[in-house]
Design a protein around this nucleic acid. Structure first.
Lengths: 251, 251
DNA sequence: CGGAATCTTGATTAGGTTCAAGATGAGTGG
DNA sequence: CCACTCATCTTGAACCTAATCAAGATTCCG
């Protein structure tokens, strides 16, 4: 499927090369706590996909869920569509994060997942995962861990509903910053993978408010902004701004 | 532990009598999809607890998580406490719902659980649950289902952040209504187990706003309210009010 | 280079909070 | 059984934050 689309010559086909064992983001991915042998077993069932282009869907609401997905590179958003067709973004997903957990209940995706930039994902076929889980207690534990952390992260997100726009956006930027740092990128300086509009949607604000807040932060010397490039100049004051409400869930 | 507190004579001790098999809320509880033999195995590890009195904690943030809990009767709230000591309610829990899922990740509770009224819960010791999961594929599936549904429910909750107070409260009441109905109670007429203040906290509003909205609904002939007793007189218009955003996740 | 999408900034408006004062209700002790 | 107290709830008035509407500016992309 990879080669048939002619996107990469077979020699460079990541399907052949990539192995969980030496995956750069393994420390932040699902199999972080597995031992070598277990890792190889998991690796054996992973499906590598061709890269997703920007705006391409990984899955859509209503579709049967046959795999979970781990982000390998790039960034995706997940969102719900209401009956009136309005989008509610439920999360932004960086390398190492798992997609599809919300559909495990009835094996149907309730949400959409779309690439925000060119992205690679690893597919984890459910049937084979379940088979592996039978004999690998640690894999069960890891699966529960990932889901539990997702639930906890959502709860933390709930905290923001009572906060002002200023606090919410600050918390959002700090959360992104920390996730970039965990993945070996700069915590101060990064490129937003999403538009103002998407940030606003996620936070329950309007894009105008997000714009205004960013310039307000800039006027106070907290940040520098150029398009989607962000420089957090004063993490400490930023933390104070959001009332220390930063999600410090993992790490 | 039960008898030692002298709360109930041994003859009435629910620990002896209750069995998952003939539990009234089994259709809405964790083991809904288990077969008879499996059910008996699960039943064998369940710990019955003495009733929780109103305002009593089931667990506290920071505590080691050794059990999951299924609500048997009554109602509980779960909440987070910020570093400044402010409470954020993360959920209200009716019979059949599972508590503690957010702490499975690192085996510590991140949240508090408090009884809103006299309540009974069943404890499910983690160690024994894991042992059972080893040999019972369906139990694993069920565990994933419960967690997946929790994640999805949180996502649905996120939708409310962009809605007006009026829509949020309507969605909240309809959600409660539906959950009562599922459990065999009236969908129109029920007693709120929580205060206005707690509703407001959960929805990101103030108790004044909740009060005002309830009287507004009343003035429009949508509801009748007397203290904590609620009568939903026009479910259809109520649904229109909240933009059909009702969480119809399960069922 | 041109067109479209995204972003910024301004002026106005509305929804919800805050502050404040009563009303209601539940629990307690005389 | 009633009075008292405390917590919860209701209602009002003023204020404020963020949304809306609108017009430019900038960036992206073919």
């Amino acid at each position: 499927m990879f080669d048939s689309k002619g996107l990469l010559p077979a020699s460079q086909c990541t399907r052949e090369r990539i192995n969980c064992r030496d995956c750069a983001i393994r420390p932040h991915c699902f199999p972080v706590n597995l031992e070598d042998g277990e890792l190889q077993q998991l690796n054996g069932i992973i499906q590598r996909h061709r890269p997703l282009q920007k705006s391409e869907h990984l899955f859509s609401a209503g579709a049967i869920l046959t795999q979970l997905y781990a982000v390998r590179s790039g960034a995706l958003k997940t969102y719900l569509l209401s009956s009136e067709g309005e989008e509610q973004i439920t999360g932004f997903h960086l390398p190492g994060e798992i997609l599809g957990l919300d559909g495990l209940g009835n094996f149907r995706h309730p949400s959409f997942a779309m690439a925000l930039e060119t992205s690679m994902v690893c597919g984890i076929p459910l049937a084979r995962l379940e088979a592996l889980a039978r004999s690998m207690p640690r894999l069960r534990t890891e699966l529960l861990r990932v889901m539990s952390e997702a639930i906890h992260a959502e709860h933390e997100q709930l905290r923001l509903t009572r906060k002002t726009a200023e606090e919410r956006l600050a918390a959002f930027l700090l959360d992104l910053s920390q996730r970039f740092r965990q993945r070996g990128y700069s915590a101060q300086n990064f490129i937003l993978p999403m538009s103002r509009c998407e940030i606003a949607n996620y936070l329950g604000l309007t894009s105008e408010t997000v714009s205004r807040l960013l310039t307000r932060y800039r006027d106070r010397g907290l940040v520098e902004i150029r398009g989607r490039e962000v420089l957090l100049k004063d993490l400490r004051r930023m933390h104070q701004l959001c009332g220390h409400c930063t999600v410090s869930a993992d790490e």
